[in-house]
Nucleic acid binder design. Structure first.
Length: 154
DNA sequence: GCCAACGTTGGC
DNA sequence: GCCAACGTTGGC
């Protein structure tokens, strides 16, 4: 069982939006970066856990925990010419983009903010990809050690 | 296969 | 709205 961090802009999809989704479950769609795609397609597996991270917003930070409930499968939004995430290079017989399904496990009582995480970048969280300079990955692995440390901050 | 130009991300 | 960082594209 592995751990991950999934970024989302709360204006487009927040942890509250997930909480209101049917069965509190949703496809994690719209990822359009190959490195992140590879993780969705090949490495993230059912029953893995992930942090739900809010980016590009007033208070960037980790909002809660989700569980992967379905392995990677093709991102349908890439096939829809009217969709914001349409990609003509992704074909139904050769999909370019993938999603996993996630289910809400719990929303933290408060956001564990980026500001709170940063001071630990030198030591406790030195392997945390999120805190690496210039990091832009929207899907990233989290070590068990880092996962457990972050949970102590809540 | 190199690399400049361009677009996007994401914190501030 | 700015801009650093970095991924992708496309000409060569």
């Amino acid at each position: 069982m592995n751990h991950w961090l999934l970024k989302s802009e709360p204006d487009s999809f927040s942890i509250d939006a997930l909480a209101k989704s049917p069965k509190q479950t949703s496809a994690w769609d719209g990822v359009r970066n190959f490195q992140a795609r590879n993780m969705l397609r090949d490495f993230i597996k059912k029953d893995d856990l992930a942090f739900f991270y809010h980016s590009s917003c007033d208070v960037p930070g980790i909002a809660g925990v989700v569980k992967i409930v379905k392995d990677g499968y093709p991102d349908k939004t890439a096939f829809d010419a009217k969709h914001h995430h349409y990609d003509p290079d992704s074909k139904t017989d050769a999909p370019r983009w993938y999603v996993v399904d996630v289910k809400l496990v719990r929303k933290f009582k408060r956001i564990i903010t980026l500001d709170e995480l940063r001071p630990h970048a030198a030591k406790a969280l030195k392997d945390f990809v999120l805190l690496r300079r210039g990091n832009r990955l929207s899907v990233m692995p989290v070590t068990k050690k880092d996962w457990e440390f972050v949970l102590t901050l809540e």
